[in-house]
Design a protein around this nucleic acid. Sequence first.
DNA 1: CTGGTAGTTGAAGTCAACTTCAAGTCAAGC
DNA 2: GCTTGACTTGAAGTTGACTTCAACTACCAG
Lengths: 165, 165
Amino acid sequence: MRTTDVLTVGEIARRSGFADSAVRYYERLGLLPATRTSGGQRRFERSALRRLAFIRAARNIGLSLDEVAAALASLPAGRTPTRSDWSRLSRSWRHRLDDQIDALVALRDGLDSCIGCGCLSLDRCVISNPADSARSGGPGAAFLPAGLRREDAAQAQAGAGRPSR
Amino acid sequence: MRTTDVLTVGEIARRSGFADSAVRYYERLGLLPATRTSGGQRRFERSALRRLAFIRAARNIGLSLDEVAAALASLPAGRTPTRSDWSRLSRSWRHRLDDQIDALVALRDGLDSCIGCGCLSLDRCVISNPADSARSGGPGAAFLPAGLRREDAAQAQAGAGRPSR
DNA sequence: CTGGTAGTTGAAGTCAACTTCAAGTCAAGC
DNA sequence: GCTTGACTTGAAGTTGACTTCAACTACCAG
């Protein structure tokens, strides 16, 4: 056992590429299980690295941490997740990505038809009116086109608002 | 002159679909020119509606308000912008959209090759490592894939951070 | 046993883009 | 002239995902 079996925050952070503070944050949110030494320091298992990889991947796809938490919660309790467990989780992302891509392509096509006209009509232009136009409510950022917005895709949380990077 | 030539905040908000508070906010940022009545109330010209359409379109594409401000600042001073002025501004969006789409498609292709393997290797998996992996710095959201992140596209601001919806 | 590196906590800060609030003023129809 | 709805301001709050800070403690090599 040359390589230690448990990892400290710093080690996990270094290996995963996340900041220490992010790792602690995730643990606090319950996304990352950790045991504690008698002195109160966190110790992570190797599998935590896989969880962090999942988190990074999910965030790259555009999931919120709430959604990540929900996904992680769906993992089988007790046993260590298998490859197919992880695979199952990421399978649904395909759809999400497709939707995002479709939305952007639609926007681009609209842009192509708008370039040159310079109309930017509030009523007619596709770019300023991608399918819908009414503002949803709540504070926070809201710049992605419909279909790219978090709230549009997430039916999960009951909270208010909505998000970005 | 049935239809009034100048518009109040409320009218502009209603017609543009933005909230009153957003319109005031934009005016405060200098994105939206307004005159004042003797009593201090804002009065907008009709052209403000076009500016708002531009702002909405730009935000839908994913531009920050800073970038919108920069774009608006490039409009000819003095005269009212023409259609070709607006057209010129929106032409560069095409590239941005292409980049965003490319990034998402790459992510999806990677996902396809990853589904089933469930590896999620921090080193090898495309999904958790879309091209790059090192965290940039700064607080704030950061979930979009490279090429979709605000900071990646914006060379403008000198501020810290980085962003998400 | 000692020193230094790495870890701990809670509270507060950051960022963007707004919204909400309170306390008060303006504009306009009757 | 009055009432009422729309407007004004500045300050503070919201959201998500973290980061930063200060004050302190743990771990471990030597």
